[in-house]
Design a protein around this nucleic acid. Structure first.
Length: 271
DNA sequence: AAAGACACCTGGGAGC
DNA sequence: TGCTCCCAGGTGTCTT
């Protein structure tokens, strides 16, 4: 489900209900998501306030005074704020019961997400090697250009590598490349500086617009209010195989790149 | 060093 | 109706 805009939408949705609340109780109904849930460590945080809900890439951090809980939504996860009396449904694996009587509830059918504990000065190992935030100044023109040189990877796979930049998943990689008019197969090292700068701009614009729209709902993504994201209406290529390109009316193609579906317009994105 | 394959897991839809 | 097969918003790890 979630790329950066969906995670940010989730973060913004839960923050007002969670920040400043004390963790009254931690409940894990399933022992393992992608990795085992460190139940004892997180339970030890009971009684402490959750000071801040932040985000790094596609990870959500629930920050306590001296530790944080790291959540990832994987492919199918979502977080909701529900009343404590609401019975847990299938795949409602984790509850953070709050002093308000509400619950931050993590649902993740495929269990590709995670719920981890971390303390100490160093960042969690999973966060350590992440590239810059795409909407931050660290994601600079110079950085983007320098990283691209002498690389033979198809540009789409390069864009989706979280060591380069975080948060760009399959949907937004396809969309940004379409806006930039670049073939997803093109070796990134062979793309001119001018076209790369356009791509960098389009990555940022696509993500920013999707955040504004509350993310993309393909199937079942909902924000904390239970509402879908509205960016799907603006998708230019993703999921539009065979339909006419909005720009040139050629049929959109779907090819496999790195084993992921890749939608593009073979006419607008020839090179 | 870098690219590619594979792994993890459930559910929905297509086709028979 | 029900079976099988394929596909899905991610990403760490192992193999070439």
């Amino acid at each position: 489900m979630p790329e950066l805009p969906e995670v940010e939408t989730s973060r913004r949705g839960i923050a007002p209900y969670v920040e400043g609340q004390t963790l009254a109780q931690f409940i894990a109904r399933f022992p393992t998501l992608r990795w085992p849930i460190p139940v004892e460590s997180i339970k030890a945080l009971e009684g402490q306030p959750i000071q801040h809900v932040s985000r790094r890439g596609k990870y959500i951090k629930l920050e306590f005074s001296n530790a944080y809980v790291l959540l990832h939504l994987g492919m199918s996860g979502n977080v909701r704020i529900v009343d404590a009396k609401q019975p847990a449904g299938k795949h409602d694996h984790v509850d953070f019961v709050l002093s308000s009587g509400q619950v931050l509830r993590l649902n993740d059918p495929r269990r590709f997400g995670c719920c981890l504990y971390h303390e100490g000065k160093q960042p969690h190992p999973l966060l350590e090697k992440l590239g810059p935030e795409p909407l931050s100044d660290d994601f600079s023109e110079e950085y983007f250009y320098q990283q691209s040189r002498n690389k033979t990877k198809p540009v789409k796979l390069w864009l989706m590598d979280s060591h380069l930049v975080v948060g760009v998943g399959n949907i937004y990689a396809c969309e940004a490349l379409h806006k930039a008019g670049i073939s997803p197969k093109k070796a990134v090292g062979k793309i001119s500086k001018k076209r790369l700068m356009k791509l960098r701009y389009d990555v940022r614009e696509t993500l920013a617009q999707a955040i504004e729209q509350g993310g993309t709902t393909l199937k079942d993504f909902v924000n904390v209010d239970g509402k879908p994201g509205y960016f799907k209406q603006q998708l230019l290529v993703y999921g539009r195989e065979g339909l006419p390109c909005n720009h040139c009316h050629s049929p959109i193609k779907n090819i496999k790149l790195g084993n992921r579906s890749t939608f593009y317009c073979p006419s607008c994105q020839k090179y």
